[in-house]
Design a protein around this nucleic acid. Sequence first.
DNA 1: TTGACAACTGACCTACTGGTAAGTTATTGT
DNA 2: ACAATAACTTACCAGTAGGTCAGTTGTCAA
Lengths: 189, 189
Amino acid sequence: MERTSAEKILEIAQELVQTRGLNAMSYADISEQLGITKAGIHYHFPSKDNLILEMVKRYHQNFRYGTAHVNTISKTGLERLEKHMAYHAGLVQIRALCLCAMLASDSESLSEDVRFEVQAFFNTSRAWLSDALEFGRRDGTLTFRGSPDLEAAQVLALYEGAMLLARAWNDVERYNEPVQRYLATVSTI
Amino acid sequence: MERTSAEKILEIAQELVQTRGLNAMSYADISEQLGITKAGIHYHFPSKDNLILEMVKRYHQNFRYGTAHVNTISKTGLERLEKHMAYHAGLVQIRALCLCAMLASDSESLSEDVRFEVQAFFNTSRAWLSDALEFGRRDGTLTFRGSPDLEAAQVLALYEGAMLLARAWNDVERYNEPVQRYLATVSTI
DNA sequence: TTGACAACTGACCTACTGGTAAGTTATTGT
DNA sequence: ACAATAACTTACCAGTAGGTCAGTTGTCAA
């Protein structure tokens, strides 16, 4: 099965939101990149709100798939954190922000449905990070004080903030520096 | 000397940008809140780009004044960090983000001048945090490994990220939780 | 008293926003 | 062969964006 138009629209729209922000992305932009008219996009996604909601759901789902995959191929907790970090470094490199970080800053322009889905994504992220931290503590690759869940909340904030700062310079190193320094702190190796 | 119109415009515009984002703030919004026409605002700030530049310069200057004041009234490095944290908690409470964090996410819509000024603000923030950390290490209230400058970069990322996440829930506790946990980590008390 | 200037207003401009309605085209299953 | 449907296009809409320009008003120095 080929990629459907709806999927292509979501893909293009997502990259536009991640690089420019919600209110700097328009149906006209998607139309131009995809080569179908604005009305054609409205056929698949009646309203912008609808489009964004589907987009966040897809992003959330892809995160679940991605992290599940990371879990199967990583042997240690440290390795999981490193893969997570590397993925986000890739986003910074294409001038993008985590979709939900971008939407959190554009939070005031969001419908309640979308805001809930953004929160759900962050909950999933935090839970996965918490698992990875606990996993690493058990296998001896990670060390930290207190509950994995609270540590995860801190790591999530660090990651999202580092991505934001890296954007100001358009320089991945501004992301890598603090994040790798954190990993060095918790790593036992 | 009373507050001039130009100052009032900057004040209102700044709050709008901090709460809604750059592209969700318009001259019409400022006009409505201030009670003068759009053209009246264009008299003081010919273009939006010009307005934003002046706004960031003012924000940066106010940060300098604010932190200088914190330096004079705080006896310890820990106290300085706590005051910094409390200020940003106040922003979250009014549904605002750090102005430069917001502009970093709207980075693609910015002129080069503004981007430089945003970078300059983050440099000042980092330098001040670095100073506070070093100060705290000397007076014995703070403890951390490695250079204060690198620690400062990490703290800055943590703060900005925590603010962003708190916005997703519109809940200050989402900011306080990771930030206070960090303070507990570095505090010797 | 007058003239100059700062600080506006009102009316207007073009470009673009999300969104709609009616019609077209190609591919189906019957 | 035909009707139904999915996937569009063309043409349009009202509202808003940032921005301009010719005037108006109030103040204040000469």
